[in-house]
Amino acid sequence: MHKNNLKEEIIRISGASPNKCMKCGKCSATCPSFNEMEIAPHMFVDMVIKGRVEQLVMSDATNHCLSCFACVERCPRGVEPAHIIEAIRVIKLRQSGAPQITPAQIASVIDTEIPQQALVSAFRKFRK
C-alpha cells in the first residue's frame, strides 16, 4: 500500500486524531511497557503525522503494547495513541495472511479469569 494511503488507513481504522497531539509526552510518561518498546507511544503518534508509517509496521514495538489504554485515558488532547498502535497491528495482521489459530481451538487454551482486554492483546502476540 502507498505510504500516504497507509497513513490514511491507520487514521481510519483507529479513529484516532494524531494531529491533535501537542507533543507533551504524557502517553510515554504513563506507558508501563516503555522500556520494552523500541518506538515509544509518543513516537507512534509523531511518525503517523509525518507519514513514517512503514517503519511502524516493520517495528516489533506493537507487540509490546499491553493495550492497557493508560495513554488513551490520560492524553490531555484525546489523541488515543493505543488505538493507533492497535490499527498498526490490524494492518500487520491483514498483511500476514491466514490466521494460525481457529476459533474452535480458543476455548481450550484460555483461562476464564483473564480479563478480555488482556486476552485480545495476548492473541495478537501469540499468533506470530
Partner: peptide
Amino acid sequence: IKGQVGKVYEEDGFLVVQGSDLISNEQ
C-alpha cells in the same frame, strides 16, 4: 525537563515521579 508526568506514587516513604524526558527520549 520537556515532557509530561505519567504518574506520581509513593515508594519507601518517598514520592516517585514517573515522566517523559522527550529530549533524551527516555521514561
